[in-house]
């Protein structure tokens, strides 16, 4: 009986932790984030029901069928009917939950990038973020690894002999305009990092040797923290930057301010 009560108590506390939302998602700030949160909640409800039923059933079985005088165990090897029922039931429930959710992933990763998307390049390095805006020409200039000079203010090795590179802006922080599609091009100078911003519900590895695009649209203004989410070395926990979502006008002004030498 103590075991049953303990299991039930654990179940109640676990449920309260989830239902009470004491430690929870930050308010969403991207267009796809709402769908992602809804899919999470759907999954939470389905698995929550499975979790509660299984734990309550386990506790009940232990309490109800505890050995005692005169008790006789039921001699049975099972029931094929039951096996078929719960196999089919779990298959249907789980796949019915998982398959529709794939459309959110498809929207994020398989959809065409809109023509008017603002492209920003993000380069990770131990343990800093380099954000590059293409400048007025809209084109990213050439990079040459042997020109890399963190101390001299050229962390990406921007090759200024390329005219497209001359107006490129490389910053340690990021700002984006509200409501405009953003395409980030992710790369790394050294080891694998991951770009993550909780409020945007965005996370993606930066893999050396690859250029990985991701897209999203911000839906509320604010200043959010960019965190590295893939172990990258001793100061991994300290690899931080900021992403500010600004109105279109503020963003244009911000870009102008930053371009000052």
């Amino acid at each position: 009986m103590i075991l049953a009560v303990t299991i039930w108590l654990i179940t109640i506390v676990s449920t309260v932790l989830m239902v009470g939302k004491y430690w929870w998602f930050p308010e969403v700030a991207s267009a796809h984030g709402g769908d992602l949160d809804r899919q999470f909640m759907l999954t939470l409800v389905v698995t929550g029901v499975v979790f509660i039923l299984a734990q309550v059933g386990l506790g009940y079985a232990v309490a109800r069928y505890r050995d005692g005088a005169g008790k006789v165990a039921n001699y049975t090897h099972g029931s094929e009917k039951l096996e078929v029922i719960w196999t089919v039931a779990t298959t249907v429930v789980f796949f019915a939950m998982v398959i529709p959710g794939q459309s959110i992933w498809a929207d994020l990763y398989l959809a065409e990038t809109p023509e008017d998307a603002l492209r920003i390049e993000v380069t990770g390095q131990q343990f800093a973020w380099n954000i590059r805006y293409p400048g007025p020409d809209g084109e990213f200039g050439r990079l040459a690894p042997d020109l890399i000079d963190d101390e001299g203010g050229n962390p990406l090795g921007l090759d200024l002999s390329d005219t497209a590179a001359q107006d490129d802006l490389v910053l340690p922080i990021m700002a984006i305009p509200l409501g405009k599609p953003i395409e980030l091009l992710l790369r790394s100078k050294d080891v694998t990092h991951a770009f993550s911003v909780r409020e945007l519900r965005v996370k993606q590895d930066l893999v050396p040797g690859l250029l990985i695009p991701i897209q999203f649209t911000a839906t509320r203004t604010g200043r959010f923290e960019i965190a590295c989410a893939e172990l990258c070395g001793l100061q991994h926990y300290n690899m931080r930057s900021f992403l500010e979502v600004l109105s279109e006008a503020d963003f244009a002004q911000w870009l102008k301010d930053q371009a000052e030498e």
Binding site: A128, W129, D149, E151, G152, G153, N154, L171, P172, I173, R240, S241, F242, E261
Partner: peptide, 26 residues
């Protein structure tokens, strides 16, 4: 040569230690 601008904005603690633009010491 013109010293490049050093941008410390990712760490507000560093920014606070300086007034105005910080330049490279190379």
């Amino acid at each position: 040569p013109k010293n490049a601008r050093i941008r410390m904005d990712a760490d507000p603690v560093c920014v606070k230690e300086h007034s105005g633009i910080v330049r490279s010491q190379d």
